[in-house]
Design a protein around this nucleic acid. Structure first.
Lengths: 202, 202
DNA sequence: ACAGCCATGTAACTTGTTACATGATTTT
DNA sequence: AAAATCATGTAACAAGTTACATGGCTGT
């Protein structure tokens, strides 16, 4: 959803043609995330289908300019006014993997965590190396890039901390205490009063 | 990819039927992430298509048991042995939104950040409220749940820190210095020597 | 001439996700 | 009988992603 919205927000600044849109996206994100050109055209067609943009006639250079519609502008406004919500459904690949792995008998969770910590540490080093040295001197593109990389750094640091936290907590438990073997009891028919866990987040 | 792999890993413990698989997934993740039952059957069919599981004949109760194949077992093993890699392509919805928003003339980035901080703080409070109080007494399911929630807490805290960080850095710049208007210059034809930013991560 | 980028597009595919249909069983 | 759950499935869709085809233009 974020690519789609970003492209729409850029189009809210004025009409663009496809290739130009990619360049704008690259500029504004500091070229952090690679974006296949083909995706631009796909997304534009889907935005057109949803009535958020309109396709213009090709100009003398053959460039096809796309223009945002009032509905599109409204969509951008609400995107910017409403915060990003990490709902209950937001899956984290690593958290899910580790949770499942921890309940798998015969799996050495500690080694899984160790391998992950090594990888995350490697990434962290790579990120700090790629991070611009100072903050105040660069142009806007460099600032955007630095901001994005910082967000990755913060996320990687949190991941490291969580891995250490999980390592300790799991080490405190004997392996068999958290390994869940397959429930051989098939669930009772009828109303089983399955304790519904309290939903977290909104 | 994570749901698919998790289901496959559970199947590696022994044959399951669809509904049972969902219960196992719920148990092992502490019922943190809701999982529509229909997705189970979809995923199973796709795993079958990829030769990772095999569909068994229905038993006397009409339950359709699925069994993992050697290829499936190998897949699980490599999933557990290799760490999760947050590559360059890993998009973060919030980071992308903020990076784009910061380069949009006429957009009050500060208020966007303020709204986001309020939301993240709200979520953080909700998470700590939902987090089990102590660590050592619960059963395996409770432990898994607590681990997952902790990962969300760590991620939300990192998000908060990054938002504050970004707030400060953006406040230090006059709005016009980081606002990128649409590049009216269309890119030059031919070989433009577009400075390729150094790729971050692997 | 050739390499390489600019530029538009199409087709296919992946994972995730939901809505819906269907029927059996069981508790109330 | 009604409600709720168990259980299997189907059909469709969203967003992202890639591979490929096509042609024009430009610098070497």
């Amino acid at each position: 959803m974020s690519v789609r919205q970003s492209l729409l927000a850029i189009l809210d600044q004025g009409p663009c043609y496809g290739y130009q849109l990619r360049a704008e996206f690259d500029r504004r994100t500091g070229s952090t995330w690679p974006l296949n050109v083909g995706q631009i055209y796909n997304t534009l067609e889907r935005l057109e289908r949803d009535g958020l943009v309109e396709r213009g006639a090709p100009d003398e250079h053959g460039h096809v300019y796309w223009q945002i519609t009032p509905a599109g502008t409204a969509d951008v406004a609400s995107w910017l006014s409403e915060p990003v919500t990490r709902g209950t459904a937001t899956r984290d690949e690593l958290a899910m993997k580790l949770a499942v792995a921890a309940t798998l008998p015969g799996v050495d969770v500690a080694s899984v965590i160790r391998a992950q910590r090594a990888e995350t540490l490697r990434r962290l080093r790579c990120l700090t190396a790629a991070s611009p040295t100072v903050d105040a001197d660069g142009d806007a593109e460099e600032l955007a890039r630095s901001l994005v990389i910082d967000s990755m750094v913060f996320a990687a640091e949190a991941e490291m901390r969580w891995l250490e936290h999980a390592e300790q907590r799991l080490a405190a438990h004997p392996q068999h205490a958290l390994a869940l073997s397959l429930a051989t009891e098939r669930p009772k028919r009828g109303r089983p009063a399955r304790a519904q866990a309290a939903k977290v987040g909104a």
